[in-house]
């Protein structure tokens, strides 16, 4: 059996809203990973990141933030490393992954390896379904994610 490349104690946070078409990409990606029942992986779902998520991410060695992207991406998705930044969004409703990582370091002295997974969507209406483009991008990102991290 191939050795799992991903470190133990990994957290995947799906961000978005499945009721807004392709905004559900982050959640659907996370659900697909959860269905694989891999060891040492915890999956969480958020409409938006909030400040208390700093406490959550501080408990893991590796964290993936999966979200839909309004922007077209060369491969239909993008996985990249994410570093902490001390900026603050003006409301408590939502915070960026970078701010959450900053708070995890400032408050809990933890700095997990972190990545953002952006998956391009095109429909943002009020329906519980993904567009064909979004489905294709989802399949591709799942393949690369599994190849690269497992």
């Amino acid at each position: 059996m191939q050795e799992q490349k991903i470190k133990p104690a990994t957290l995947i946070i799906g961000i978005g809203n499945t009721g807004r078409n392709d905004d559900g990409l982050g959640w659907t990606f996370t659900e697909k990973i959860e269905e694989m029942q891999l060891p040492n992986i915890t999956c969480e779902y958020r409409y938006q990141l909030q400040i208390e998520d700093a406490q959550l991410v501080s408990q893991y060695e590796t964290v993936f933030f999966a979200d839909a992207s309004h922007q077209a991406l060369p491969k239909g998705f993008e996985i990249k490393e994410c570093s902490l930044v001390d900026h603050y969004y003006f409301t408590s409703h939502s915070q960026s992954p970078e701010t959450i990582l900053y708070l995890a370091k400032a408050l809990y002295q933890k700095e997990p390896m972190a990545y953002t997974i952006a998956i391009a969507g095109q429909d943002w209406d009020f329906e519980n379904k993904l567009s064909e483009t979004a489905k294709e991008n989802l399949d591709n990102v799942l393949k690369e994610f599994k190849n690269k991290y497992f």
Binding site: I51, D86, Y88, S92, T99, Y102, L103, A106, L107
Partner: peptide, 13 residues
């Protein structure tokens, strides 16, 4: 809250 976290860590936690 980022500034609170930096300067008043216990309160923020």
């Amino acid at each position: 809250i980022v500034a609170v976290a930096s300067e008043h860590r216990d309160l923020a936690i």
